[in-house]
Simulated assay, not measured.
Amino acid sequence: MELRHLQYFIAVAEERHFTRAAARVGIQQPPLSLQIRQLEAELGGPLFVRLPRDVALTELGEAFLPEARQILERVARTKRRMQQISRGEAGHIRIGFAGATYFEPRIPAWIRDFRSRYPDVQLHPQQSNTASLLTALVEESVDAAFIRTPFEVPEGIVSVLVVDEPMVLVLPLGHPMCSRERVPLAALARDEFILLPRDISPALYDRTIAACEAAGFRPQLGQEAPQITSIVPMVAAGFGVSLVPASVSQIRTPGMGFWPIDAPQGEMPLAPISLAYRADHGSAALERFIAMMPSQGTQGTQGTQGTQWAQGVHGA
């Protein structure tokens, strides 16, 4: 049984006439009659009663008609779905988020715009850390990931810079520098710094160390935080100070606050976010997602934005 057999049968059933049905499907009447006889032989009985002026469905034909329609509708629906997937208008993307990257405003805005434009593409978010997400990309358990850079790129992985996010200081209320509007890093040389373990977030760890060394001191390392969102309550609890991406200042906990770093614009510590994905991913939906990536602004604009986020939240 072929799809054309179903199409021919439905045409005859609806037209109740072989000649009109043949004209409808674009073939001659004799070949149409032959196709119907072949279908009847395969199904084991007649589908039509031949009358002088037209035809009528037999009991078998009445039972077969809704089944034939459902099959063709399912085939048409499947075809449309596959065409959508091939164009990137449907499907699914598993997206990883590392180091609270979802707090950076451009990322949720990007995802919101993509979902609005392609509602039939399902996005499946997964939260983890940079190291774990890179492994997941290689193992193909995620399709793309927002990660903190720089990092050692595994073979076959592509990364594209999304934004150079500025960093800000997290201080406990009562710290001597709380009275300042902007705090120089050098003023924290005697404080203990709360960092993420380097093996899960090498980019933030290395950039914090480098920023302190550029300010003239090697930071004293205190207790490590299990994840970036844990840093804020740990600072509030008095475990030390820290340096975090500016978008983390959206987390508010009593007993702490965020301060802009007092540094020349070109020397502001940054926490870049990149989108990483497999070079051979083969997903049209992911290609559309990548194509909608927001344009990268200048460092000067980003540094100013980070300062605005930090201003006014000193006494969280």
Rank of each mutant, 00 (worst) to 15 (best):
F239A: 13
Q250I: 00
A246S: 14
I251N: 07
A225P: 01
P226A: 05
S249V: 04
I231L: 04
G222F: 10
G238Y: 15
Q227P: 00
P245D: 07
V241E: 10
G255C: 03
T229K: 14
I251Q: 14
P226M: 03
I228G: 11
S242C: 09
T229S: 15
V244A: 01
L243K: 02
L221I: 15
V235C: 02
I231P: 09
G255I: 01
G238A: 12
S247N: 03
S230I: 02
V248I: 13
Q223F: 07
T229I: 14
P233D: 01
Q223C: 04
G222R: 05
Q250M: 08
A225K: 00
A225E: 00
I231A: 03
M256R: 02
L221Y: 09
L243P: 02
Q227E: 14
Q223D: 07
P245E: 09
P254S: 06
I251S: 06
A236P: 07
L243A: 07
S242V: 05
Q223P: 01
M256A: 12
T229M: 14
L243T: 05
V232A: 09
V235R: 11
A236K: 10
P226Y: 04
I251H: 09
E224L: 10
S230Q: 13
P233T: 00
F239I: 02
L221D: 07
V235E: 02
G240V: 10
G222Y: 08
A236G: 06
F239H: 15
V248H: 01
V232D: 10
G238N: 08
A246P: 11
Q227M: 12
V248W: 00
I231W: 00
A237F: 11
P254L: 06
S242M: 10
V244N: 00
P233Q: 01
E224D: 08
I228W: 08
I251G: 06
S249L: 03
P233C: 05
E224H: 11
L243Y: 03
V241G: 06
M234L: 15
V232F: 09
I231S: 02
Q223S: 09
G222P: 12
A225T: 00
E224K: 09
S249E: 13
A237W: 12
P245I: 06
G255H: 01
F239K: 13
M234C: 04
I231Y: 00
P245K: 03
V248Y: 00
S247G: 04
Q250A: 11
I228T: 11
S249W: 04
V248C: 06
T253M: 09
L221V: 15
M234V: 03
M234G: 04
G238Q: 13
M234E: 02
R252D: 08
V248E: 04
M256P: 00
A246I: 01
A236I: 11
T253N: 08
S242K: 06
L243Q: 05
G222K: 06
A237V: 02
I228L: 15
I231C: 04
A237Y: 11
A236Y: 12
Q250R: 10
P254V: 06
A236S: 13
A225S: 02
P233W: 01
V248G: 02
A225C: 01
A236H: 07
S242R: 07
V244I: 14
F239Q: 15
P245V: 08
G240M: 13
E224Y: 07
